[in-house]
Computed example of a mutant assay.
Amino acid sequence: MKASIIGGGSIGLLFAAYLLRSGMDVSLIVRRKEQKGAIQNDGLKLKSRNGQFTYKPDVHILSEVESIEADILIVAVKSYQVADIKSEILTKFEQTKSILFVQNGMHHIKFLPDLKNHSVYLGIVEHGSLKESDTCIRHTGVGQTKIAPYIDGHSGINWEQYSTDSFSFVHHHDWYEMLSKKLHINSVINPLTAILGVENGRLLDHPDWIDLMKKLSAESCRVLHINENDAWEDLLTVCKNTSLNKSSMLRDIESRRKTEIEAINGYLVELASQDQIELSNHEFVYKMIKGMEM
């Protein structure tokens, strides 16, 4: 089985390292020549609880390749970058049967119907990872990758066969249920931790912060049509289980990078406006993050 991975960030590097470790033939496709050269020279280093490992994937620059043969394409770029590379996916991976998208939020869903000639899967990644350099990824928290079919999905791929103790794949039957539950959690934890500058667990330290969480959670549940009580319990569990983690949005703000606020809270605000639902708290945190990005 041959896999191509678009994305040289923390998730792309994590997938590349573990799929190489499982014995899969992996091509890593990055944006910058500097990163390509560094990985070719030094290899891809994985730091995990089981030790430190170095792998040598094939590395390419997306803009420089005409086509790449692969059984699976994993798109691990940020949600706001999916639109920019859609045409290249359509042309350069025309023969690739299966494509897996692992973005935060649900904004990228609007670009997927054009991929009707492929088996398209959606995934959510529950691992903790930290990109220490262009060539080094630290696996900070073991979780799972949940995968659900979006278009067709009958490609014959058994994702779970590539699972290991440290990097497992789990099949989910309903992509909307899977993504909406994750979106609800991200829409509360990500903007609040980024605005307050705190780790996930710190949100539970102050009653006023918990009140903000409840208001954001209730609004998310209303527009996503999910059970409010169950969603709140899931949110508390994630905060406790990832108490020492920094959200991806907080890391983006600290590193002066563009965030995925458009794909998370922005998507909810857009969805609510179509149904004439007011999301005052989400509109507030959305504007706060947009201002902090600048």
Rank of each mutant, 00 (worst) to 15 (best):
A218S: 13
S168M: 06
S220T: 01
Q35D: 08
T164M: 11
V285C: 07
A148S: 15
L122W: 02
S22Q: 12
G9T: 00
Q274M: 08
I68C: 10
E270L: 12
Q52I: 15
D42Y: 14
L244C: 09
H225D: 15
Y121W: 10
L236S: 03
A272Y: 03
V269S: 06
L73I: 04
I109K: 09
S22K: 13
I89V: 11
H108N: 08
G156T: 05
D58A: 08
K86Q: 14
I261M: 04
N245D: 08
G123V: 04
E64L: 07
G37I: 09
L268W: 04
P207W: 00
R21S: 14
P149G: 06
K287A: 14
N190S: 05
K78H: 09
R222W: 02
V125P: 04
H171S: 13
E88Y: 07
D205H: 08
K215C: 14
I5L: 08
I72G: 07
A3I: 12
I210S: 07
I151F: 09
L279I: 05
S129R: 07
S48D: 08
K36D: 00
N227P: 01
M294C: 13
E260T: 07
A218G: 01
H173D: 13
F169L: 05
L73V: 03
G43C: 08
K78Q: 05
R21Q: 12
I226Y: 04
K86D: 07
S27A: 14
I39T: 10
S67D: 09
N50D: 13
L112Q: 04
D42P: 00
H108S: 10
A218N: 12
A3V: 13
T91F: 10
P57W: 02
D165V: 01
S133W: 07
A3W: 09
K181F: 10
K97S: 12
S48P: 11
D42L: 14
I5N: 06
L44K: 03
D134M: 11
